[in-house]
Design a protein around this nucleic acid. Structure first.
Lengths: 206, 206
DNA sequence: AAAATATTTAATCAAATGATTAAAATGTTT
DNA sequence: AAACATTTTAATCATTTGATTAAATATTTT
């Protein structure tokens, strides 16, 4: 008889259910019973495997934070790629990920509000963006009069914001903009090419 | 003896407390007891005046939605102002409001996820953006070869996103960007002038 | 001032919720 | 298969939480 591994495990069934429930409702509105039911397991097993709702949540949150922030850090700090290419890669990766997980940003951002202390360590674990290769490259361009001078935070806010914001506000955009889900996804795919051009205009002023 | 009016009223004390508590924690994480304590009143008074937590929440949410979306609709549909001026006005109004109420967007957006049905009527009450004066003016520019052609949703997403997103993600930006609260506010004020220029570049391709 | 009405309080309810326990079932090792 | 360990279940706890009630207090009306 085959040994249970991977997704057959009770533990993994709980994780999958927890991802779904926490992601869609947030910590406070999620009930351990919701997760147990979604996983098709007895409620007590949740505590048996994960001790508490909070511990389970922390695991899921850490996973998601890595997923949300981790993917781009190596791009940001790669010495070999130009700043223009970095922007293309970051935007592409964000939008591709978000099409697959559209409710990730609201989840992360709203939990970040509710438990800021929980994220400080994790966020601070990453190298500060202010001394990343990306910023170094940008400041070099400014020095050489190739780029418009602005605080690098504007750059990050714009790159991430233009990529992420439409997903955060998707229901509104669809509602007031007369856009179907399918059209929405097409528009998001379009943005993969448009955003780098827009950012280029901002940086190079042309 | 002076009659109680305005902010002296128990009802208004509860409203003020509810705004604060709901805004900072969201519906699910807010306890009616938190609100009562914050207001300095007996818990039963909350139900005496507002019947239920949900009814109180609906009032606060409606208030905030109007505050968040209502302010710009008359600008968007004003025939007399140019599209460039509209953009300046919208960005200025958003950022000014958000500096005063920085946690409004996360609140609205995360509750929008949790109770989408509650917003549909309110949002649909507004005229669709797709047949606003703003869009009409933009399409006219495109027709006259003055503006780059794109789906108007990109325009809205960009204007609102560039204005709002930094506030939604402020803790992250401050954390990873080495920016103090004071610097953050200065940068946001800067954006009032920068965003309209960036949007102009996108529209006019220069 | 007395009566009527409105507001406030303390106590309590019922349901929901996170967690635990003891026993049963299942799986593994010897 | 017996002994041991792991996993699962049903029942139950203890708190928390939204809400209600009846009595007390304050305010307004007559």
């Amino acid at each position: 008889m085959a040994k249970k591994t991977g997704k057959d495990t009770t533990e993994e069934k709980i994780m999958i259910a927890a991802r779904k429930v926490f992601l869609s409702k947030g910590y406070a509105a999620s009930r351990t019973r919701d997760i147990a039911e979604e996983a098709g397991i007895n409620l007590a097993l949740l505590n048996y495997y994960f001790k508490s709702k909070e511990k389970l949540f922390d695991i899921i949150m850490l996973e998601n934070l890595k997923h949300y922030a981790g993917g781009i850090m190596h791009v940001v700090n790669d010495e070999a790629t130009t700043i223009d290419r970095k922007i293309e890669l970051i935007v592409d990766q964000y939008i591709t990920n978000l099409i697959a997980m559209p409710d990730l940003p609201i989840f992360v951002l709203s939990e970040l509000r509710n438990h800021p202390q929980k994220f400080i360590k994790i966020v601070q674990g990453d190298k500060k963006l202010s001394d990343s290769v990306f910023v170094k490259q940008y400041l070099q361009l400014v020095k050489n009069k190739k780029a418009v001078k602005m605080h690098p935070m504007h750059l990050f806010a714009n790159i991430i914001g233009l990529s992420v914001f439409p997903f955060v506000t998707a229901p509104v955009l669809k509602g007031i903009g007369n856009v179907t889900q399918e059209q929405f996804l097409d528009l998001m795919a379009e943005r993969k090419k448009m955003i780098p051009k827009w950012i280029s205009m901002m940086i190079y002023n042309k």
